[in-house]
Design a protein around this nucleic acid. Structure first.
Lengths: 300, 300
DNA sequence: TAAAAATACTCCATAGGTATTTTAT
DNA sequence: ATAAAATACCTATGGAGTATTTTTA
């Protein structure tokens, strides 16, 4: 019968493409690893590695096997986590990805409370764009991701925990009226500056205004909302920012005004994305509750 | 290190709730199975089974572990299938689920060609409603399902292979006009008979007419289109049927007329649903091509 | 010829079997 | 008292190590 050890060994070779190094990584002799791989290939009836004394190559079929082996290992790791996380929640570290238009605004609002409630919890945060995070969730590199929806997440599951609208930000001197609301029709589209392509915030902002994602003259090739806001302060145009970013981007003494974009909403939904069958859902639910609770307290 | 064998044994006990019977099912002695389970529980630090001389119970944590173990086994089975299916496609049997409003119309059109191209292929078909099939795909009981979209398939993946419109079917004597087209506004809603709740065809038909799924007086508690058509023939009302069912339901000599429902479409999308990471995609692609090809030949 | 994988041979850990004991109803 | 799981003990398989051979770039 095929064993987990064999899969471990095969995955080690995939990494190093070298039997001796792989053997060292697995703390076994080259001989042990070699026979294990031969036996695995014999059992499967598939040559996984084409090898000679100079190089190790992965066959096409072999790559499929290795990908599946990673999957098996992933599920097995999760099985081990079940026991640990149920014995004492938050004992095992967790890595969560977050996109750049959420991270800097969400995390300062919620992480203090997380630390307060679970002081020993090792939570690692990475910041990437949506497509990178989706891939990392898929292959198990990270436990979960915090994205803005709608976004295509084929094969993954989402748990929405927050919804918010956009605010239109302009310089006080250029604010057309004193109203608290503005509709997309009243916006001067030509003056609107948005993040560069690849940031989902741009798509969501355009969708909220019912605009196509046509290549706009006004595209601003910036990677952060902070920079955009600086441009607005410099009277170079206006922009749209999500509600949770308002308090950080616009201070009382600032030259800027933010008015609610009055279009049917919510304009942006924030969600936790996980693989189906991900096991640490209890812990994620606890986190999610803190998120919603803190956002409600600090945004409404 | 935890082994696959241990998981196998644990799953056998879950089925039988009896160590001796489980041991027999695994072709090992009760002693071997007993020690393996004890070792597994020790390694995990979790009591999976609460047992005495009279009964075996599954603990809460144990059930989580067992569910995950099933997952591991599933992925491992797929790993074994990779080698087999790549060595000779269609050598391993495959089970595909299909909903009752697709099966009887799609399968006669496509299966002959499948048999012709892959005579040795053992394809098993089961017929259930969408929610049952989605669950069976999730837990690996079946390889894939053929559904009509839109339908919620959280965490699964869909490959659309056909799109079609609805046709309004009425008795010739009651046909309001001779036109080839009718809009939903021209329909007499009171006379419209649809399948009972639970059949997605009802939802899709209503959506095509832009109607709410309100509890209609005209709901007809039938489980098959054939029955509905009999009712139409008996002048009890009218109905909507998908294009692929037309040739079977309405013959030349019949008393019935079918006219195309002229609403923005397509009204119903047919798709293959699989788990993410499902491995026999090459074979499914071949099947799917046959499906589309045969439908185009026989429906257009 | 030299670097790397495969093989030969030995050893030991452990999975499994049989027989027996413990346990709880 | 008895049915069923746990344990003791023995055996055999196979995984792992060391040393050596084979392979081919």
């Amino acid at each position: 019968m095929i064993s987990i050890k064999q899969l471990h060994y095969a995955l080690a070779i995939e990494k190093t493409l070298h039997f001796k190094k792989a053997a060292e990584a697995c703390n076994v002799s080259q001989s042990a690893l070699s026979t294990a791989i031969n036996e695995l290939e014999k059992q499967l009836g598939v040559t996984i590695f084409e090898r000679n004394n100079k190089q190790v190559l992965i066959t096409n079929d072999g790559q499929l096997i290795l990908n599946k082996a990673k999957r098996v290992k992933l599920e097995l790791d999760e099985l081990l986590q079940i026991s640990q996380s149920n014995q004492q929640p938050f004992a095992t570290p967790m890595t969560i990805g977050v996109i750049p238009t959420i991270g800097p605004y969400l995390l300062p609002k919620v992480l203090p409370e997380v630390r307060k409630q679970f002081p020993t919890f090792k939570l690692r945060i990475i910041e990437e764009q949506s497509h990178v995070l989706v891939e990392k969730v898929r292959n198990g590199e990270i436990d979960a991701a915090i994205l803005a929806l709608p976004y295509p997440i084929d094969g993954l599951m989402s748990f929405n925990f927050w919804q918010e609208d956009f605010y239109w930000v302009c310089h006080k001197d250029e604010c057309p009226k004193k109203a608290q609301e503005i509709t997309s029709e009243e916006l001067e589209i030509e003056k609107l500056m948005l993040l560069k392509d690849g940031h989902c915030l741009k798509d969501h902002a355009l969708a909220a205004c019912k605009l196509q994602n046509q290549k706009q003259d006004t595209d601003f090739d910036s990677a952060s909302l902070h920079t955009l806001i600086q441009m607005v302060a410099g009277k170079l145009g206006t922009t749209l920012v999500p509600q949770m970013a308002l308090d950080q981007l616009i201070h009382n003494e600032s030259e800027l005004t933010a008015v609610h974009l009055n279009e049917p909403g919510p304009h942006r939904t924030i969600a936790l994305i996980i693989r189906p069958n991900y096991v640490r859902t209890k812990e994620l639910t606890l986190l999610q509750n803190i998120f919603t609770e803190q956002l409600t307290k600090k945004c409404k």
